[in-house]
Design a protein around this nucleic acid. Sequence first.
RNA 1: GGACCGGUAGCUCAGCUGGAUAGAGCAUCUGCCUUCUAAGCAGACGGUCGAAGGUUCGAAUCCUUCCCGGUUCACCA
Length: 602
Amino acid sequence: MHNIYLKLNKHIQTALDSAFPEEAAHAKKEGNLLNPQLAKATKPEFGDFQINGVFSLAKTLRKPPRQIAEIIVKQLVKSDDFNSFCLPPEIAGPGFINLTIQNNYLTKELISLLTDEHLGVPFATENSDDKSESVIVDFSSPNIAKEMHVGHLRSTIIGDSLARILSFRGHNVLRLNHVGDWGTQFGMLITHLKRVAPQALEKANVVDLGDLVEFYRQAKKKFDEDEYFQTCSREEVVKLQKGNNESLQAWKLLCAQSRKEFQNIYDRLDIDLCERGESFYNPFLSDVVEDLQKSGLLVQDAGAQCVFLDGFKGKDGNPLPIIVKKRDGGFNYATTDLAAIRYRLKSKPNGDGASRVIYVTDSGQASHFAGVFQIANLAKWVPQGCLLEHVPFGLVQGEDGKKLKTRSGKTIRLKDLLDEAIERAKADLERRLLEEGRVESQEFIAKVSTTIGIAAVKYADLSQNRITNYQFSFNKMLSLQGNTAPYLLYALVRIAGINRKGGNFDLKLTYPQFTEPQEWALVREILKFDDVILEVEKELLPNRLCTYLFELSQIFNRFYDQLPILKSNEPSLSCRLMLCRLTGDILRKGLHLLGISTLERM
RNA sequence: GGACCGGUAGCUCAGCUGGAUAGAGCAUCUGCCUUCUAAGCAGACGGUCGAAGGUUCGAAUCCUUCCCGGUUCACCA
């Protein structure tokens, strides 16, 4: 109802201007407008919208709120256009004005959705007020030669969903996987590789490293035990940085192997990413330091090149430096992140030309990003109107409230976690089939349990406000009741069932005539999709979309339970089928925007 | 100790620029399947919104102080 909101707001604004010309003029002089504080109604009985601004007006005008409200209402109903889509406003309580949109206007909006692939959500374009932006979403970002574990789960799932939503809105989205493909750990990895598989350096693809985690563990063990190995490793880092051929070859092999393993996970999760690791920014690191030097931000402290910022203090209360060049001349992650910011904001072809950069990482990195963002601003790398945003999220905890670990205390591999979700979904499904005496093919069972398992993991994560820590529970996420993926998928399956049994309707024949409250509740909910998407785009909180989809499903299930659909007579039959179709479209689209695939039967 | 984030029903959590009587789900209890998938629906029970002050016509929401939990604080990322 985004358009309706804008239309209403304009009407109210006009009404305020004519009802209180002096106040309006005064407000305008101050550079603002009288604020009607138009908002969505907090409860269905209050209609569709409510005006909350009467009280502050009452104060400045020194008149009772209800009197002000009456003046506004009187002014509003003078407009024929207003009366053509809104019912006469009602003054309620101490001075709220409740607004209800007319039925025929709502049905008109609803019909327009039938032919709108975007389901009412505005599409940002190059030349409009609703301007399309270049957005970078930096998410997932595992480390090369390590395995993806639960720690990567939230970033990957949340980042993917945000990227999908921003693209859907019309923005040009670059999904960057800022993998950890550079750094001191490569010294030991390359040294180890050279020892166990020297042939890998001569020919490409001759060696399958298999379990990289085990490989990493072995290398680490040697590094800790063997002094000579340590020396070689350190030398190896230097060689690599200098661009030694052999070392680069080994490095590439390790990266390729990791990439293959990451890709397995991304394929299973249906996630599309553009890999651009830390190494990409190597050529720009010294420029960063130079730039900071020029802008006078750089300070030498204890041999390191640092930037000191307001509000950054250490344990002892002394100012805390952000180091951009280490005492040994090396760079660290602050430097890389600064180089990345600079590159991403620079216009093409020397950069990405982004106007919004979103970092989806755990909240533990909040102060790091606050620091580098501040430096970027001070160094004037952030053009007017460009936005750097850290999108933090909390820890994944087990049901005991502690950091999620295996029973033996190890970090849980993402692969195992997904396998278990699917396995449990399969067990649930098979139990149900048995109970209901249904027989399904192995293929069906495999597909349904995979879809449900992955959906459950994703939805459980996304449906929670990302700021807080998140308690991971297979039982809850796979639960058949409540705000879970299976519940939403089930609503869609019901709609698909209706479609199979003759759910086609001819929309030309139908001018909808809704009569039942369950129908109207569904109509109104369907029309809220655009508001929700716009909100998520701004706040970057996918859980708002989840809440909406859950409520839509609830309202649909009520409708489905309480009214006959296929067995109703015309015109109800067509009207109800139309509601099924739109509910299905929105659920499918909404779930898709969360990165969740849907089912026809389950 | 400083910074940041949390504290809302027995449990897990929503709560949008401050708005009307604080919302879900789970759990517990009570109803509803000759009918489109009951993985559903209807209802009941459940609250000093961590505490105290303050701002406001109005505070879970904003400000201050305090309590509790988490994260983080110099060359790892």
